[in-house]
Structures are given as structure tokens and as C-alpha cells.
Write a protein that binds this DNA or RNA. Sequence first.
DNA 1: AATGAAACCTGACAGC
DNA 2: TGCTGTCAGGTTTCAT
Length: 285
Amino acid sequence: MPELPEVETIARGLDSRVAGDVIESVWLGSKPEPLKSPAREIVATLESKRIAGVRRVGKHIVFDLENGGRASSAKKTHKTARASKLAPTSQWIVHLGMTGRMLVCPPEEEIAKHTHAIARLASGRELRFVDPRRFGRLSVSSGFEAQGSEPLDVEPARFVSLFRGRKTPIKSALLNQKLLSGVGNIYADESLFRARVRPRRRAASLTRDELGRLYQTVQEVLKEAIALGGSSISDYVDSDGEEGFFQLQHRVYGREAEPCLVCRTPVKRVVIAGRSAHYCPKCQK
DNA sequence: AATGAAACCTGACAGC
DNA sequence: TGCTGTCAGGTTTCAT
């Protein structure tokens, strides 16, 4: 479901709504657990922690946690204050997979099917993790870092070097989170269309010019999508339940057989490394 | 080392 | 109505 623009939208929404709130208790669903860290560790890390802020790293939502829940804040001596400052900050890491949602709900709201985790907040509200396909993952960390470069921060030279010598199709390279963190199927196709590069081209075969264009279009597409709140295809909504509008700007993704918006040639859909890829056979070389 | 296919899940939708 | 097949915003694992 969510790529960088959707996760960015969700993280911003969560930050504005729950930053400063305190997690009082945590419920984790049983059965096949969508957990990367042991359940005990997750519960222990979250409970009675204050949410300092929420941000996006790649396609991950990161809740920065700090001590300051009731128990510890009520009686804080200078000694414990200093200790908590020195203690490594902990983080709650959420990956939404294809269908995950992280919602802020009033407690009386009915528990949706496929709800796998609930964090009850001191304000009375609940953070609920809902994920029908169970591809999403929850974990805790104390020094989470993206595995690849942030597409919106990467230097042009670094961007170019990511693809040097790679025989894999440029489309697959864009989806490789260890190179760039955050680009997914929609935005890879849309960026390649705007850069006029075919998705199956070997990454190493792109000219300096083409890589320069791709650098520009990746950033352009992601920024435009963030500005429109992401792409809602079937069920993406942000933490407020609001849909995004970038799907109205898609030029090739999901437009198989429809006319290219530039030259009217029918858009092609092919499968590359198991993912569908959409492109204009005339505009993209 | 790197590339691709299969696996992991559930749900929606098209076609018969 | 209901069955079958296909597809879906992602990642990991297992063969080549």
C-alpha cells in the first residue's frame, strides 16, 4: 500500500496528533504475529513511554519514545533525569507492508477486522494497527537507520553512483530499498516515465543525462505526491482516515492500454522481477 | 555478489 | 450464486 509519500503523510499526521501523548498500555494480537521483535520486548519498550515525535524513515514510521510516562515523571530526581537523558532513546518502528494502517481512534470505536495491535494513550485515544494481508511489521529499536539513501536528501553524485555497474533493470534498482529507501512501484513507474527511460533498461546502461533526469523526476514525483497526500488506489488512508489525491496525477501507473498523455500511444504493462511495470513504448527509450 | 522466482497473506474483481 | 483465476502500494528467502 504505502510508499514514501503515503508514509510521510501518515507520519506527519500522527506526529501532529499524538506527539506528547503517553502510551499507557499495549495489546498485541496473538495468532501469526506481525512482529519483528519479541512481543515482550515491544510491550516493555512502549509501555509508559512518552511519544516525543513521529517521523518517516524510508517506508518506515518511527515513533521516538522517551521516559516520562506518569510513573517516572511524577518523581523525577536530578539523578534519574540525567540517567534518562543518557539512556539510549528507544523507537517503535512500524512498516505497513501492502495494506497496513495506523489509525488514531476513540476507544468506543468498533475494533476493525484484522486489528493486530492497540496502544492505549493517556489522552484516552488509541493507536490501532490494522493490516489485512499481514505483510506489515512492528518492532522496537534504539538506533534505527534506513538501509539506503533518502531519495529527497541524496546528493546527485551519490544518486548516480548507486546504479554504477548494476546489470539489474533500472526499475528493480529503484525498488531496491538498500539503494534508495522509500521508492515503490507507483513512483518508480511515474519517475521513469517522466525521465523518458524504459523500466527494463539495465541500470548501468543509463547515460549521465538520463540519470540526471531520473534524479530530478524521482524528487519531483515524490514531492508532488506528498503535497497531494499520497496516492489512494483501493484502500489507502492517512491517520485521519483521509484519502490522498496523487492517483489523479498518475501518467502510466494503472493506465495499461490507455493512451499516453504525451503521444497517445497505448501504455504498456509488463512484469519485471515479479512486479508490474507501466510505460509508454514511444516516449520511453 | 547478484538476479529472479516463489513465498508470505487476504480481499476485490472479472469471467464463466 | 459460486467457483476459478488474476491482481494488489512490499519484503524475505531460496535457488541459480
